[in-house]
Design a protein around this nucleic acid. Sequence first.
DNA 1: CTCTAAATCAACCGCTTGATTGAGTCACCG
DNA 2: CGGTGACTCAATCAAGCGGTTGATTTAGAG
Lengths: 220, 220
Amino acid sequence: MTSPRASRAEATRALILDAAERLFAERGVLAVSNRQIGEAAGQGNTAVVGYHFGAKEDLVRAVVRRHTSRIEGLRAEALAATEGSSEVRAWVGCLVRPLTGHLDAVGPPTWFARFHAQLTTEPAYREIVTQESLGSPALLATVDGLNRCLPDLPAAVRLERGDMTRLLMVHVCAERERALAEGTPTPRTTWDATATGLVDAIVGLWLAPAAPTPTRGDRA
Amino acid sequence: MTSPRASRAEATRALILDAAERLFAERGVLAVSNRQIGEAAGQGNTAVVGYHFGAKEDLVRAVVRRHTSRIEGLRAEALAATEGSSEVRAWVGCLVRPLTGHLDAVGPPTWFARFHAQLTTEPAYREIVTQESLGSPALLATVDGLNRCLPDLPAAVRLERGDMTRLLMVHVCAERERALAEGTPTPRTTWDATATGLVDAIVGLWLAPAAPTPTRGDRA
DNA sequence: CTCTAAATCAACCGCTTGATTGAGTCACCG
DNA sequence: CGGTGACTCAATCAAGCGGTTGATTTAGAG
């Protein structure tokens, strides 16, 4: 594939990414130092991470990208199969199932969902995951398709429920992943069933009538 | 009120709690040191925080408790007004409005919602907020009342949607708070309107039909 | 076989952290 | 009015941090 010379570097890069992802999910992104990651990756050197990735932000971005690229691919497939539909449920599935499907394909154990949920609440890293996720053309197209199914919804409510959908996807998966890691009970037995539960709920959320409150789209 | 001797200590304790809450929300719980908090609280001493609160975990718990106790009070009031109802919407409001009402009463600017959202995703502090929140009797009674309105829902789906409700409450408020702090647009103009939007969506979520997937309540 | 450059390692720098310690300050109590 | 104890301060400690530097290993290129 790549230059034969770079294969060793590529291998350690992968080791570092694996270790970083695991430690980030288990202990928290900010609680883990580059040194600890390098050590967990089996590298005796304290500077490996800096050598291969630079600052911690770049490492975080690399870990994120490794997953979002694959999820993006799955979503593009789902999008192609859904194009033209006017079923809310189909479009919501197109949002949810690439994520759950990816987690199913990777693990167990998986760490990405917890890691991802952390990033969205951490002020220092929030922007990274926002950029990486919302830059996805397949995602935007899906949201667009969903909106076309619900032409009567006020713009503000659409934004609001879009946010809610995103929050639910990320955090429900993170909670399930955490429960799996800790061995505590989960409401659903598989990622596929989790997706079904999520889709049920999110469809209900979108189809709910909006109470007759004035909802202007401006800032408060 | 308290012992006259302790009034000075009480004042600095409050200063520290204020500073801690703000810094935690703005920069992240783990990214802020006790020294920075003490300094931001106007205390020249580097050891103030340790002196008054001990470890960082105790400080975090104190900040959480200051808010949850008030929210708990509001929820007890709402609960009293809702008792006996069989309206899903009333019970959901009983979950949501104490939180939004508290945020409305405190700020702006508020920091608690972002801080709280962070804690739920941070492995090191997750348990604290779980204990503080789920130990609330008013909350449990409200969940109970909600469940009585929906007797036909499978147990697993009830758990699942309870989780989703909690996630939406916390993170929607956190996102709005963040938008307010940054001056970016928000879907709703007031906390009260935000509560209405949340209630609309959560009611829809609970009333949504559960797809005929086998949903056993055991662990995966 | 030698050269060369990427990759790894080991040591180090300045800085910040949590924690401890002992001196100083202040308000109340007797 | 002097004592006492709670509170604040300043100084200090070892440990860990990110980042840099130069030596060492290693494997393909010439």
